[in-house]
Each structure stands twice: as structure tokens, then as C-alpha cells.
Design a protein around this nucleic acid. Sequence first.
DNA 1: CGCACGAGGCTTACACCGTAAGAAGCACCC
DNA 2: GGGTGCTTCTTACGGTGTAAGCCTCGTGCG
Lengths: 259, 259
Amino acid sequence: MAISGGPGRDRPEPSGEPELPDVDELAISGKEPPSARVPLSRGRILSAALAFIDEEGIGALTMRRLGARLGVEAMSLYRYVPGREDLLDGVVDALVIELDGDLDVLRTPEHGWQDFLQRMAHGVRRMAIAHPRAFPLIASTPPEAPWLRPPLRSIRWVETFLAGLLAEGFDDEQAVAVYRAFTSFLLGNLLLEVSQRGAALGPLDLVEEEEPANGLSDAPTIERLSALLADDNSLQEFEESLESLIDRITIQIVAGSGA
Amino acid sequence: MAISGGPGRDRPEPSGEPELPDVDELAISGKEPPSARVPLSRGRILSAALAFIDEEGIGALTMRRLGARLGVEAMSLYRYVPGREDLLDGVVDALVIELDGDLDVLRTPEHGWQDFLQRMAHGVRRMAIAHPRAFPLIASTPPEAPWLRPPLRSIRWVETFLAGLLAEGFDDEQAVAVYRAFTSFLLGNLLLEVSQRGAALGPLDLVEEEEPANGLSDAPTIERLSALLADDNSLQEFEESLESLIDRITIQIVAGSGA
DNA sequence: CGCACGAGGCTTACACCGTAAGAAGCACCC
DNA sequence: GGGTGCTTCTTACGGTGTAAGCCTCGTGCG
């Protein structure tokens, strides 16, 4: 949460205001009809970028096109965003902020940490499904400056998660262990689900190859199974895996509490 | 695939098959000293691309630079590779091929499917650690043509894995279920491990900010925990998670066998 | 009122990118 | 010699991120 007064890193905006609100409105609005001149802001830019990615994918997002969508020249964006990579970082942060404001995943001290993890997982899942093309961003280190960054391109994610765990009574090492287990779980499950959800449109795009009766016939395997692969019963699977993970954490913590 | 005999260092290249000019040598050699004119081939290109990515990251890989590394003009690459995206696909496929030739993960019918999964997981892990900057490729749908593709950018991966599972006696639905669970597990665990392994160089690159005594003090959380986060005891964690997952599969399969 | 000023947006420019089209080298066989 | 294919190089085009500077106002101050 941290209403942008706290740990928000200061953007290299030395002038005027000491701190600018990273994401303000984030109205998740679509494209702007050429209405009155809305004054352009970091929030509006990030919001438009997210909408753009949702519609056309990350690769299609260029500064010029994003500018055009906002009725503005590309270079104007640089007044609010240091560059393209930082813009993508900003989109990820915006998603995370939207997430943990969405269901205020902290502030429920009465239901215990299992409930916290459940809420967190479902919140992230909802996000992944709502923005399937933006979600993989969270798991990809940016092409430039590949390391020397927080894992997963959003320090806010780590902060939010760890703070929640600590608030639930975990100690430092437990929190980190749970963070790892849970983040890797979410990452894997949701990346796979999102990618399969996309592939389900028309199953696997095997180039329509005429396998000329290869005697061994190992190609048909995937053709035969592609319907099963595209079959979308993933919510139930997600639930089961989630509960199983939470059980495992219980056991691990209980078993490890002696040490 | 082509028993490939004993310890001969010969690369897979299943020469019996009709025509598979995909990956031939893949010597994983480094940069080519300007020695004699080696004739350039898809395999050499993919190998150089992988080495390039390992050294400088995906973002730094351009056709021109890759050409220069091979002592060749950029356009020459297009005789063997349809374009940049396909080149990246090829790199992923090369990794997967290297993997399942590396430990011939099939062909061990005597040790049961748990052993198969163990070998698979460790093989992928070794690959992820050997090529940490290339590995995220496997989990990222290409920016163009985002859907309409096999999940995870390598149909070969799906094929190899499913074929192995079927060979171990799973039926179709079980194989798909195990494939999902296992792939998501590997993806999540290894993406996180790889990214943290990178971040461990110097912990989190917080811009050195002078937080002017914000009363709430929620910033230090991550600073305090960053050492723990960077701490690399991940092999053991991986093993534990792996065993736990395999147990879960056992239970699930046993429980689900009645249906 | 006049006017400097500065924020916000625009224009120009540059280096680099992927790649389409075709020219130039080259080994071979007739 | 003259084709005849490959393979590689040259040239060129449209697109990209972004550095540098210009223009245009609303605004505050004398």
C-alpha cells in the first residue's frame, strides 16, 4: 500500500515537487477519444501502456504508437517516463499496486496466514488472467541490465509479499522460504496457464505437415494429446495445487520450527 | 531418437530421419577465431547465438552482431534462419535437444517414472543454471504472433516430455496432468532461482536512497531480508520441492485412478 | 499592462534495428 | 569458355529508442 509517500524511490525529477505519485489514476481506460485535452501524466501513460499491451502485446508497444494512442508525440512521453524499459517496469508495478489495492490483501489479521496466501494467490491469478499478455513481463528480467535488479521486475511485489508474511507472524527466514515457494508456484502455474489459455484458441499450430508415413510414428503423440492440453480445467487444478502447497508449507514450517 | 550409441561425443543429428536440418552440430563453441572459412550452417548459427546470449543477454543479440561474431554479414544468416524470432525458437529447441540427449532421459524403463521425473527435472535445472540468460526464453511467448503457438516456445519440449511419460505407462490424461504439474513446477522454481542467482551478485539494487526517516519504516523490510533472499541454498530447496511434488503426483494418480 | 519564465509538447536528427531485393563471388559440370 | 547453382555481400527502406533543442502557452510578478 504505502500511499506513495513511503519507500517509493524518487524518480530523477529533481525539480519542483519532492515526490511524484508513481501511479495515480490508473483508470484502466481504453483508448482516448480525441476529447478535451487531458493533460497527460505518468499514470495516464502507464494505463494506456497496459491497455495497449493487453490488446496488441508487448512487442507491438512502441513509444511512437503509445504516443499516438494518447494523441501525443513520442518524445512527449519522456517527460514522464525515463525510457521504454522503465515504462515496462512501471506497468508491472502498476499491476502489483492494482493487485494489492484490489483485495486489500494485508489488513486481515483475523483469518490467519493460510487465508492470506489464498487471497494473494487468487488475486495474482485474477491479474494474470485479466492481463495475460502483460503478465509474462513480471517473470522476465528486462533485456538491458539483466541482473542487478530485484527478482521478477517488481521490488514492490517482494515488499508487499514479505510484509504480509511478517505481519502474519512468520519470522524472517520462514517468510523468505514461504515467499520463494509461493512465488515460484504462482509463476509456474500462471505462466503455464496463461500460455495454454492462449494456445487453446486453435490447438497447437503445428505447421500442417504431411508426415509421409514415418514408420516410428512419434509425431502423432502431441496431436492426439493436444485437445487434452488445450482443455481448460485449470481453476480446479490451481486450487488443488494451491492447497497442496499450503499444506506443504504447514508441514515444513512445523517440521522446521524445532531447528 | 537414434540411440546414439555410447559415450561418443557425436551430437544427436538423427541422420536416419527424412530431413531435419534443424540443428546439426551445435558444438556450443565460443566465438570463432578468424580461422579457416568454416562454411556456416544453421547449427553453427544457433550455437553462436546461444553463446552470445549467455554472454551478453537476449536484448544484445542482433542479426548484425551475430553475423559479425561469425565473421559474416547479417544478411547471410537469413539463408539458414527465417528471421530473428525463429532464431530464438531455434535456440530454445537446441537447448531442449541438448537436454534430452545429454542424459538420455528416455530409455530407462527399469527405474520407474519417479526416476524419469527426477532425471528430467535435474536435467532442466542444469540447463537453466548453465544458460541462465537463455532460459527465460523458454517461458516467454514470442512478442510477435503471441498465441497460436505451443506453450513455452518449444513443441519439442512437450513432445519429449509427453512421450517419456507415456513410455512410463501413464495414460493420456495422466500424462497431461503430470506434464502440467511438472512443467509449472520447473518453470516457477527455475525462473525464480535463476533470477535470484543473478540478483545475488550484489543484493538488491535499491538506488541508494536516503529515506528521510519515514515514521512508518516499512522500507527496511526488504533491506533486512535481502541477504536472506540472495542466500543460495536453492539446490536443497529444489530437491525438497521436487520430492514433494512427486509424492503429490503419486497421491493424485492413486486417488484419481478410480475415475 | 508588459513580460520573463518555465512546464509541456513538438520537431529534427542520429544510430541502430530487421529484412527485402538483387548483385557479386565462387565451385562445379558441360 | 559458358552456364548453373549456392553462398555471401551490398544497398536500401521503413521503423525503433532517444538526445537536443525549439515553440507555445498559462502564469506570476514587476
